[in-house]
Design a protein around this nucleic acid. Structure first.
Lengths: 325, 325
DNA sequence: CGACGATGATACTCGGGGGGTATCGCTCCA
DNA sequence: TGGAGCGATACCCCCCGAGTATCATCGTCG
């Protein structure tokens, strides 16, 4: 036997009658008149095949079975409320799971702050960080193992969208003893003749190539003396006097003894981008919420910013278009 | 925000669509046509304010919010099924709590078997035994602390019903050394001149008075030498040679060393009744089920038995009278 | 003891909406 | 490029939920 014919309305009506001890009072509370209420209760009793209420001239009181069903009904109603609420939360991107791709040295940048802020405003969302290089992120996004990825820069892909979150100026790192170490600011030209230690070795094209392009745009030629795997190794080689290196602004937090950090002059516009990437057309509310949080990082937000794709921030009240053709 | 407008129908429909991956297949499964199904899903989405399904030419698949709501809906539907089932069980007297009054020495009688059988056939019913004398049972019944009580016999009460469950023959208990101890059967007349030890001292009228009435009906006078509190004390006194005592047939299980049990002859019809009592007009399904179990004790059930009141054994399918006036 | 007032149940009507058929627009694929 | 399959829409019917009016019953109070 099943629940054929029983609707949530019946539960609401029955609960009201039990709690008000009277059909009329319950009808008042339900904003209906008394006769329909009587019929609904009768339908409910017929559907269950059980007499739920003992009627008298003083009102109605539940039978033993009615007491059982009252508890069940109340429980179901609150569960239904919660189900609706959880669904609405999920629709607003405030409930669920978000897989985020990050690259190795991202911990020095703004990503931790973005993630932490998102976690605070969306406590019901489970955040999972995956440390992946750009190639791995693209693969994982396509296989839906990631919803969003952070990367330094991005080469156009047909099925992926991207957006610059932050642009950082570069800083030169030199050995303490280096003649240029006492300067307040440096130009790209001044360091173009120095041996450069860059990272990471893979994947190509990567940070190294972007640096090379930077010099090339200014008709300079950089001398890359060493390609190493990671930032920390590079700093170590700088301290050992093997040459100079470059850091992003947020990388300055990492100070290695024996090295000096000197900013590049503004005129050189030596910058590197931080991007978010996601599947083009992904309208997941979680993604929309997360992108919004990521964009909030840009202070002040540039007014001429034109994101490649902007998933509309979902509103709680979805408006159905009356005509669609 | 609440769950206004959402009905169980919407849950069933939505679950079907998600599981069948297609509106048409779901409509087939639900035995409705596809357009109403589409409309119901639209209503559901509007009521929740969330888009639940991503439609395409290949079918429909749930959004993130849709997945959440699918789990919730499935859960709610099974809970609703269980709620209905539990209510039907309660309506059939197979779920709930039954408070039973028993008297002190009832453990020797058929009551344990009745209770055990009822527990087996109604495993979901919580059985609570209350040890109360007749006065206490009547009081507890009126205060609704008991649903049913067992007693030896009963004086009519306006608001209580009763029914004889079992009639037991009496057995004489005598000291081993007694001259009558070697007899196979005894008459009331033969023991009327012997000193009798009877129990319990309270409440009156009680077992003692019924025994006295038994002798009186046969124009005999019993000599009650001792009134003691309980059966075990009486047996002890018998073993010590203070006199004879009487036991119900089921009491024979209790054999005290130094005593001999000899049946009374059938012609004397020395019997004592076991009764169940309950509130007159109590139509609790649990009571009805329990009485039925108690009556099953009478083997064979006397065909001329006319219970004082027989609460109709409730059927799962309640038939509502089409006209009531 | 009878009138009154409260209760739930019933009779009847109305209208919204659930469910039906026919059809459209779109996408995918042979 | 046309057919097959999908969901959405238009339109209709009629069931059923909700309303009003009224009844039967019971408890209460003057």
């Amino acid at each position: 036997m099943s629940i054929t014919g029983i609707e949530i309305r019946h539960l609401r009506y029955f609960v009201a009658v039990v709690e008000q001890r009277t059909f009329r009072a319950a009808a008042l509370r339900l904003h209906v008149s008394q006769p329909p209420l009587t019929r609904q209760i009768q339908q409910l009793e017929d559907a269950l095949g059980v007499k739920l209420l003992e009627r008298s001239a003083r009102g109605a009181e539940p039978t033993a079975a009615g007491k059982v069903f009252y508890q069940e009904a109340r429980n179901l109603l609150t569960l239904a409320e919660q189900a609706a609420e959880r669904t609405r939360l999920a629709g607003d991107g405030r409930l669920g799971r978000l897989d985020i791709g990050v690259f190795g040295s991202a911990v020095l940048g703004p990503i931790p702050r973005i993630v932490q802020r998102f976690r605070q405003t969306h406590p019901q969302v489970e955040l999972v960080l995956h440390s992946l290089d750009r190639i791995g992120q693209i693969k994982a996004l396509r296989e839906r193992r990631l919803t969003v990825g952070f990367n330094r820069f991005f080469t156009e892909e047909p099925d992926l969208s991207w957006e610059v979150i932050q642009t950082e100026r570069m800083v030169v790192v030199l050995p303490e003893a280096h003649p240029l170490a006492k300067r307040a600011v440096l130009s790209l030209a001044e360091i173009s003749s120095e041996p450069l230690i860059l990272y990471p070795r893979t994947p190509r094209p990567g940070f190294i190539d972007q640096m090379m392009r930077l010099f090339h745009q200014r008709h300079l030629t950089a001398h890359v003396s060493q390609e190493v795997d990671d930032l920390v190794t590079a700093m170590g080689l700088v301290a050992s006097g093997f040459g100079l290196s470059l850091l992003t602004d947020s990388g300055r937090k990492l100070h290695v003894p024996g090295t000096i950090q000197v900013p590049l002059r503004k005129a050189d516009a030596a910058t590197v981008d931080l991007c978010v990437i996601w599947r083009r057309g992904d309208d997941s509310p979680l993604l929309a919420e997360f992108l919004q949080e990521a964009r909030a990082l840009r202070h002040p937000p540039p007014e001429d910013a034109e994101p490649v794709e902007k998933p509309a921030p979902r509103s709680a009240k979805r408006k159905r278009a009356p005509k669609r053709r």
